[in-house]
Write a protein that binds this DNA or RNA. Structure first.
Length: 802
RNA sequence: GCGGAUGUGGCGGAAUGGCAGACGCAGCAGACUCAAAAUCUGCCGGGGGUGACUUCGUGAGGGUUCGAGUCCCUCCAUCCGCACCA
């Protein structure tokens, strides 16, 4: 393709100019705007055009904010600890510190090709001891606040990654990273008490300008439910079984009870000849993998031989054991009301347990229920509650139970505490010393960072011990409290530790004394706009909110939500599939930048589709935006010395252009902003042909509007128009509605809603004039009486004919 | 199973309830050229008509409305999230 402009040359020129004279200057008078990209982990395969998309979107938004007069906080850094980096290092047979440094260098080179306005003075790297010093500091603060605690329990274990995982890292029973089915392993783990923040994490979602989808995912993940705990006495024993239910209104309909196989009383309650069957069932379910348990919906179970007493009607209900009840939710035991719960219904049908209806839609019992009735209705078969609305009974029953000392109102959450230990090398050492005398003692804050020791062998052991456990000279230490012999904690932190707070550090990344200074935090935080993929909806984004709330509570920052606004860009695929190495459909930006230039690629990344939706990549689309750039270039170059007189039409096009581009940009409809540029370019080219040129102000306006999108071309054309300063010190243009108005407007003439013709009318014409003109134009088609005339100014005339 | 998103030409996609298909890609025709590329101009949903036109058309079927891609109801398909949380 012929090149009227040499993109390689001008892009190189402007990149170096911006380095010498940055366009984003903090002169102390401007309000700040913090626009943040989710920082990448430095993978070995580099960036593809899908990664570019998010960075381009955030850079366009950032440069727009500069032109709107903000001082922009727009940093970039590296999420370099964690499994992906370590697994890559193992595969390549190099030490992770080495491969990480190499990958950072490569990705940084690729990111620089985007020409984003990142402020590299703020750069952070989670593996830098000066950074992870504060990751460890936060852990110690949490430990001191009682939020970090040790517990031995069966946790999710990935046999391939050879480490424990958090609940959030298990997807459909498999490891989020490698896809291997997760098993259970009994391990002593460090846990973070995120559950203590469950209510605030839930309620504060309301404050956030986030996609509803992400808020919903978080709120579902927290999973708050309201209900009651009810004590069932075991018949012929002094034991009690506590159940949790969200449907206390259905208590009269409880015809059996089920305990999770792991329930403390499960074995104890086995009576008589059921003993062997119960032990067999408990053993078998302990052998089943979580994937099995998830996939197999067919109910299984075993009767214990014991009965409990329904506290309301004193009826005996059989106690069963089944793995459809989860041990770690609620009390691990449930009362079962088959008439009003799908799962209980299935179970009762299979094991021929009576079904008693206690709620009916219209108060009339249905003698043969074919499925559970889970809606609200009128209470029946429920003693003193008969005739009451079930919604009222739901409120009344817990109060009555509480008054009689057999239950109480309560809430439950699906959210679990965060399993925080990893049995891997490449992470922040947990700054704890285990002393036989003093227990778990934090490393004194002044001794931070606790450096990750250099080792020869960093491969995971698979035993549940971290590779650090082998380094005896590191492990063996003295207790900071009593001075006696002690051992260091050898587990490391998960990948999410550094990313949970990195956005705070950027604004004060070199501070030796504080995580972030009070002054800088107040000035530059929190993040105004956060841009990245949706895959972190309940991982990174939930953890970051938790960390921020904690840091708020200890007075480190004065806000308690990190990201005011969130935008998730859609993924880019090719040949109908997500881009991946294994599919072989990766499109690398490097060649496209070389052949078409950075500006063209930036435009196409936006033009490819609505930014929030997944899009299909087509290299040929590059030609379209490239042609547009050349046409615009030619238009400016051919007009700049034409000295054409400005016409009313040029002024009108200019103001309409400002209006359209600005409203579309504010609506984040970036694909239509690009098509808008193309449309206005076509209009200006038509005007050029008519008038022999375009006035300078209109050209300059177009260049400023385009500057966030195609910064190099914009700067180059700006300078060719005679400017010596950067286009980015200009102000975003403002439109004047009065100057956009047309005197003559086009109106569609419809009969019964179908367009028959188009007619030109005066913009200010009254309805009767417009209607008369409309009738005139389609007189031959008015074959019947017009019974109604509708005029929507500026749009249509609709003549309703019988 | 539950929840959400999406569904419009050959393709990517536009359309505050008001001319469906903007803008772009691909295609076709023409100009320029010895020729090709590039560039420029025109055409470009289906059926009917030489034509002005006409008719059908936004996953399917109903409905509301003067008027529906857009709002309501019932389905279908694809993708995503959650998945025995009592």
């Amino acid at each position: 393709m012929a090149t009227p402009y040499n993109h390689n040359k001008i892009e190189k020129k402007w990149r170096s100019n911006w380095e010498k004279r940055p366009v984003n200057v903090n002169d102390g008078s401007k309000p700040k705007y913090y626009c943040l990209d989710m920082f990448p982990y430095p993978s070995g395969s580099g960036l593809h055009v899908g990664h570019w998309r998010g960075y381009v979107i955030s850079d366009v938004w950032s440069r727009y904010k500069i032109l709107k007069g903000y001082y922009l906080v727009h940093p970039m850094g590296w999420d370099a600890f964690g499994l992906p980096a370590e697994n890559y290092a193992i595969k390549m047979g190099v030490h992770p510190s080495k491969s990480t440094a190499e990958n950072v260098a490569n990705i940084k080179r690729q990111i620089n090709e985007i020409s984003a306005v990142y402020d590299w003075n703020m750069e952070v790297n989670t593996t830098d001891p000066e950074f992870y010093k504060w990751t460890q500091w936060i852990f110690i603060k949490m430990f001191k606040a009682g939020l970090a605690y040790e517990k031995e329990m069966p946790i999710n274990w990935c046999p391939s990654c050879k480490t424990g995982l958090a609940n959030e890292e298990v997807v459909n029973g498999c490891c989020e990273r490698c896809g291997e089915p997760v098993t259970k392993k009994n391990l002593k783990q460090w846990m973070l008490k995120i559950t203590q923040y469950a209510d605030r994490l839930l309620e504060d979602l309301d404050k956030l300008e986030w996609p509803e989808k992400v808020k919903k995912m978080q709120s579902d993940w927290i999973g708050k439910s309201h209900g009651a705990e009810i004590d069932f006495a075991v018949n012929g024993s002094d034991k009690k079984v506590k159940v949790y239910t969200t449907r206390p209104d259905t208590l009269y309909g409880a015809t059996f009870m089920v305990l999770a196989p792991e329930h403390a009383l499960a074995k104890e309650l086995a009576a008589g000849e059921q003993k062997a069957a119960v032990e067999d069932y408990i053993f078998k379910s302990s052998m089943r993998s979580s994937v099995d348990r998830l996939q197999d919906k067919e109910k299984t179970g075993v009767f214990t031989g014991s009965y409990a007493i329904n506290p309301l009607n004193q009826k005996l209900v059989p106690i069963w054991i089944s793995d459809y009840v989860l041990a770690d939710y609620g009390t691990g035991a449930i009362m079962c009301v088959p008439a009003h719960d799908d799962r209980d219904f299935d179970f009762a049908k299979k094991f021929k347990i009576p079904i008693i209806q206690v709620i009916a839609k219209d108060g009339a019992e249905n003698p043969d229920l074919t499925e559970a009735y889970t809606e609200a209705g009128v209470m029946i078969n429920s003693g003193e509650f008969n005739g009451m609305n079930s919604a009222d009974a739901k409120r009344e029953v817990p109060g009555m139970l509480e008054a009689n000392g057999i239950g109480k109102k309560t809430t439950n959450y699906k959210l679990r505490d965060w399993v925080f230990s990893r049995q891997r090398y490449w992470g922040e050492p947990i700054p704890i010393v285990h002393c036989g005398h003093c227990g778990a003692v934090p490393v004194p804050e002044e001794e931070l960072p606790l450096l990750l020791p250099e080792v020869e062998r960093y491969q995971p052991t698979g035993t549940g011990e971290s590779p650090l456990a082998d380094i005896h000279e590191w492990v063996n230490t003295t207790c900071p409290e009593c001075g006696g012999p002690a051992k260091r904690e050898t587990n490391t932190m998960p990948q999410w530790a550094g990313s949970s707070w990195y956005f705070l550090r950027y604004v004060d990344s070199k501070n030796k004394n504080e995580l972030v200074s009070r002054e800088k935090a107040e000035k530059y935080l929190p993040v105004d706009m956060y841009i990245g993929g949706v895959e972190h909806a309940v991982l990174h984004l939930l953890y970051s909110r938790f960390y921020t709330k904690f840091l708020h509570d200890i007075g480190a920052v004065d806000f308690d939500e990190p990201f005011t606004r969130l935008f998730n860009q859609g993924m880019i695929g090719k040949n109908g599939a997500k881009m991946s190495k294994s599919k072989g459909n990766i499109v690398s930006p490097d060649d496209l930048v070389r052949d078409y230039g950075c500006d063209s690629l930036r435009l196409y990344e936006l033009f490819v589709g609505p930014p929030e939706l997944d899009s299909e990549w087509d290299d040929r689309g590059m030609d379209g935006v490239y042609r547009f750039l050349n046409r615009f270039w030619n238009l400016v170059m051919n007009s700049k010395d034409s000295n054409v007189k400005v016409t009313e039409e040029m002024i009108k096009v200019r103001h309409k252009m400002i209006y359209d581009i600005t409203t579309r940009l504010e609506a984040f409809s970036l694909n239509t902003v690009v098509s808008g540029f193309m449309e206005y370019n076509n209009k200006l080219i038509d005007l050029f042909k008519k008038e022999g040129g375009i006035d300078k102000e209109t050209l300059e306006t177009a260049i400023i509007l385009l500057a966030p999108f195609i910064p190099h071309v914009a700067e180059e054309l700006w300078s060719r128009l005679g400017h010596t300063e950067s286009v980015f010190i200009e102000k975003w243009p403002v439109y004047d509605e009065n100057k956009m108005k047309d005197n003559e407007i086009e109106i569609a003439v419809q009969i019964n809603g179908k367009t028959k013709a188009v007619v030109m009318v005066g913009a200010e014409d009254a309805k009767d004039i417009v209607v008369a003109k409309a009738k005139d134009t389609i007189a031959d088609k008015l074959t019947g009486a017009v019974i109604k005339e509708i005029y929507v100014p500026g749009k249509i005339v609709n003549l309703v004919m019988k």
